[in-house]
Computed example of a mutant assay.
Amino acid sequence: MPQDVRFDLPFDTPVSQHLEYARARHLRWIWDMGLVRSQAGFEEYQSWDLPQAAARTYPHASADDLVVLMNWFSLAFLFDDQFDANQPDRADKIAEVARELIVTPLRPAGSRPRVVCPITLAWAEVWGQLAEGMSLTWQTRFAASWGRFLVAHCEEVDLAARGLAGTLGIDEYALFRRRTVGIHHSIDAGERSRRFEVPPQAMAHPLMERMRDLAADTIGFMNDIHSFERELRRGDGHNLICVLQRERAGSWQDAIDEANRMTQACLDEYVELQARIPQMCDELGLDQDERAGVRMGVEAIQHWINGNYEWALITGRYAAAKEGPAASAELAGRGSVDDLLAV
């Protein structure tokens, strides 16, 4: 089964010692904010074990910062599951909410959302906490990455609503997936988790840009492999394996094998480029403090590649077999039990 697929990653990453402390507070916040609205929705959310993912991808965050990161972490996943193919106006509603999520970081801190629903209210609170203590440069970079992700998400929903989700070729899909996976802003949040910033000149270097893109490709393809059965169950064609099988007219196993090969190729190139980081630092003439920022920035990428991978192997979100209300919702074309786009 694709969720059981293993990759040989060349680095290990730690798990936060604050996992259980942060998990308890995060789950209370999820309920209090109305991000789950039923017992079935809460149980489904718990089965994903997103706190485990946050503890693996942000292992060096303080206990209280890990709570903030868990709270933010949940929003993209919950928002992603709001598409319902049986409601033709759903794409318009998702676009309206996405626009609100995009502009929130551009408004004065504490501004009340103009589109009010559980997702937008939660994001307004979390953004104020995420931005605290970070430079305007970092805030702008994060907001831009976050915006690109949400725009891509809306494009994905629109394609599905118009019955065009299965029209992308493999090259077009790979570039699109790089945006929909949402890794660039997630790596940016790694800086917030340890309260440092990668020097702007290093962040703008082609080597770092390519490493971040390769990390997004590696993680996006891994997620597609591990979530394949879930998305096939939902009739969701936004998946590397589905695109490969359709374009090459081979078997599902052939498509899975090729997806594995493509993922490993991205990972191998990333590792090769990572070895060139000291040369980049020399080229830019970075001092010791700046080099430390680059080192932690690279570690943030590693934490995401390995941490997300380890979580994907165990999460109930990608489980092949489901029963109960959550499974019924997915079979109906929807990933979430609860509607979070209405007050």
Rank of each mutant, 00 (worst) to 15 (best):
H18L: 04
A61L: 04
H303I: 03
E44M: 13
A216H: 08
S111V: 06
C266L: 06
S62L: 12
I241A: 01
G110A: 06
M208K: 09
G182R: 01
W127N: 00
I225E: 01
R90T: 05
E272R: 13
R194M: 12
R276L: 14
Q264M: 04
L340C: 04
D80T: 05
H205Y: 04
T263V: 02
R99V: 14
E132A: 07
S16I: 08
L130E: 07
Q3M: 10
D84N: 13
T315G: 00
D158F: 13
L50R: 01
T140R: 09
Q201L: 10
A189E: 12
I187F: 03
M70H: 08
S47L: 08
R162C: 13
A174E: 12
G166I: 07
C266Y: 08
C154W: 07
V67M: 11
D84W: 08
E100G: 01
M1L: 08
N260M: 15
L273P: 13
A144M: 12
Y21V: 10
S16G: 03
C266F: 10
E310P: 02
L340P: 05
G293F: 01
W311G: 02
R210Q: 14
P200R: 01
A85E: 06
W252R: 11
S193L: 03
H26G: 12
G285Y: 14
P51F: 01
R25V: 10
L267Y: 09
P59W: 00
L130W: 09
I219M: 05
A91G: 08
F42K: 10
A312C: 02
E323C: 08
R90K: 10
T263N: 00
Q39V: 15
R178I: 14
M222G: 04
M33P: 03
G182W: 02
Q46R: 15
Q279W: 01
A265Q: 08
R177Q: 06
A98F: 02
E155H: 09
Q52C: 09
G190L: 03
A143R: 00
A91L: 05
A216I: 11
A300I: 07
A91R: 12
Y21K: 09
A98V: 10
V5H: 00
G166Q: 01
D254T: 14
W48G: 12
G166S: 05
R56S: 10
E197M: 05
A189D: 11
A63P: 14
R248M: 11
Q274I: 06
I225P: 03
L207R: 13
A320T: 15
D217V: 09
A292P: 09
E247P: 14
D282P: 14
R291Q: 10
F7Y: 12
D287I: 13
D92M: 11
H303N: 13
Q129H: 07
I102Y: 06
G335N: 01
N308G: 07
D188L: 01
A249S: 15
S251G: 15
R261W: 07
M70C: 15
R179I: 11
